[in-house]
Simulated scan of single mutants.
Amino acid sequence: MELTYYGYSRCETCRKAKNWLDEKDIAYNEHDIVQNPPNREELENLYKKSGLELKKFFNTSGKKYRELGLKDKIKSADEKELLDILASDGMLLKRPIVTDGENVTVGFKEEQFEEVWNK
């Protein structure tokens, strides 16, 4: 199955992930995470399948994250509210997000990509 890749062209980590996928000749359907981010329902599905804490989906080093003061908000908000916040702006999402419909990775760690996507 072809992967779905959500990334941002100006993100160095995204470029590393794309290069890795390209070098391994792994097909993917690319989505600009800013222009065409996953919607709330897709985000909830990605979150549930990832096995990660929802806060791992936030781009904590991003300007938008700091502007909105989300560091404290994340600690007290419930799942529904956090998903709504994430769905409001693609720049809030940690990237890249890669999925095959069952597996999900957030960010790029070569060892993790090797384990999950190099099958």
Score class of each variant (00 low, 15 high):
Glu2His: 12
Tyr6Val: 03
Gly7Asn: 01
Ser9Gln: 13
Ser9Met: 14
Glu12Cys: 14
Ala17Pro: 04
Asn19Glu: 14
Glu23Ile: 03
Glu23Gly: 07
Glu23Asp: 14
Lys24Gln: 15
Asp25Val: 10
Asp25His: 13
Ile26Asp: 15
Asn29Tyr: 13
Asn29Ala: 14
Asn29Met: 09
Glu30Val: 11
Ile33Arg: 00
Ile33Thr: 00
Val34Arg: 00
Val34Tyr: 05
Gln35Trp: 07
Gln35Glu: 14
Gln35Phe: 10
Asn36Lys: 13
Arg40Thr: 09
Arg40Lys: 15
Glu42Asn: 08
Leu46His: 09
Tyr47Ile: 05
Lys48Thr: 12
Ser50Phe: 04
Gly51Leu: 07
Leu54Asn: 01
Phe57Tyr: 06
Gly62Trp: 03
Gly62Ala: 13
Lys64Asn: 07
Tyr65Pro: 05
Tyr65Ser: 04
Arg66Pro: 05
Arg66Tyr: 04
Glu67Ile: 07
Leu68Ser: 06
Lys71Gln: 10
Asp72Arg: 14
Asp72Ile: 13
Asp72Glu: 15
Ser76Asp: 09
Ser76Met: 09
Ala77Glu: 06
Asp78Trp: 12
Asp78Ser: 12
Glu79Leu: 09
Glu79Asn: 12
Lys80His: 12
Leu82Thr: 02
Asp84Asn: 12
Ile85Tyr: 00
Ile85Phe: 00
Leu86Thr: 06
Leu86Met: 06
Ala87Gln: 06
Ser88Glu: 10
Asp89Cys: 02
Gly90Cys: 05
Gly90Phe: 03
Gly90Pro: 04
Gly90Gln: 03
Met91Val: 08
Met91Phe: 07
Leu92Arg: 01
Leu92His: 02
Lys94Asp: 03
Arg95Lys: 10
Val98Asn: 00
Thr99His: 02
Asp100Val: 07
Asn103Met: 09
Val104Cys: 00
Thr105Trp: 02
Val106Phe: 04
Val106Ile: 08
Gly107Ile: 02
Phe108Ala: 01
Lys109Ser: 03
Lys109Leu: 11
Glu111Pro: 07
Glu111Gly: 12
Glu114Leu: 05
Trp117Gly: 05
